[in-house]
Amino acid sequence: MAITDKIYVKNHRQLSSALDTNIPKGAFKGATLDILFNGGEALERLDETTRERVLDFAQDFMDCGCKNAPYCGHPERKFIQYLLELRAQGLSPSAIVDVMTDDYMVYAYEGDILSFLDDGVRTLEAMEELARVDGNEEMQRRARETKRELSG
């Protein structure tokens, strides 16, 4: 299961009530993406702070210009990049959850973020070893450096 399947909308019941529609708990579920991507008038019903965070989320992760947006995969990839950038800044899984909640009113469980980061480290270890076997010193170096950033 992808990490984006484990990202949840904070206070989704209150948002559902304010928007007078059913919003799934998952931030990257189809109905949630539809509301964020096409929300327009409905978002005006939200208080200013909530509306700003929802619009920031839509702008930062869903603004790709693809014909199939928001179902093109770019929102998920952009969010994963955001998580990796937070980790590269030295944030712990707990701090990453706090920042994403403050920035976008979404959250994840700390253990899910930790598992995501651990899976990334394991993948980079495999890449490093494959690059070593293949004699690709540049790729080996890049995998090792990225692994070090993820590991903290």
Rank of each mutant, 00 (worst) to 15 (best):
G90R: 08
G90A: 03
G90N: 10
G90W: 03
G90I: 08
L91W: 08
L91F: 13
S92A: 13
P93N: 05
P93K: 07
P93C: 05
P93R: 06
S94I: 02
A95V: 10
I96F: 13
V97C: 13
D98Q: 12
D98M: 03
D98W: 01
V99G: 05
V99I: 12
V99Y: 07
V99W: 08
M100K: 00
T101G: 10
T101M: 11
D103N: 07
D103M: 05
D103W: 06
D103H: 04
D103G: 00
Y104I: 00
Y104A: 03
Y104K: 03
M105A: 14
M105N: 15
V106M: 00
V106R: 05
V106L: 07
V106W: 03
V106E: 02
V106F: 04
Y107N: 13
Y107D: 04
Y107P: 04
Y107K: 13
A108N: 04
A108W: 00
A108Y: 05
E110V: 14
E110Y: 04
G111I: 08
G111Q: 09
G111L: 10
G111W: 01
I113M: 06
I113D: 05
I113L: 06
I113A: 02
I113V: 15
L114W: 07
L114F: 09
L114C: 09
L114V: 07
S115A: 12
S115G: 03
S115W: 00
S115D: 11
S115T: 09
F116A: 00
F116Y: 12
F116W: 05
F116T: 02
F116L: 04
L117Y: 02
L117R: 02
L117N: 03
L117T: 06
D119R: 11
D119Q: 10
G120M: 04
V121W: 02
V121I: 15
V121H: 00
V121S: 06
V121P: 04
R122W: 00
R122M: 10
R122D: 08
R122C: 02
R122Y: 03
R122P: 06
R122G: 02
R122S: 01
T123W: 05
T123D: 08
L124C: 11
L124H: 07
E125V: 06
E125A: 07
E125F: 01
E125C: 06
E125L: 07
A126K: 12
A126C: 04
M127S: 04
M127I: 01
E128P: 12
E128A: 15
E129P: 01
E129Y: 09
L130E: 14
L130T: 12
L130D: 14
L130K: 11
L130G: 13
A131L: 09
A131I: 09
A131G: 09
A131K: 08
R132L: 14
R132N: 12
R132V: 13
V133W: 08
D134K: 14
D134V: 06
D134R: 15
G135Q: 11
G135N: 09
N136G: 01
N136H: 11
N136R: 09
N136Y: 06
N136E: 13
N136V: 03
E137T: 04
E137C: 03
E137A: 02
E138C: 03
E138K: 13
E138R: 07
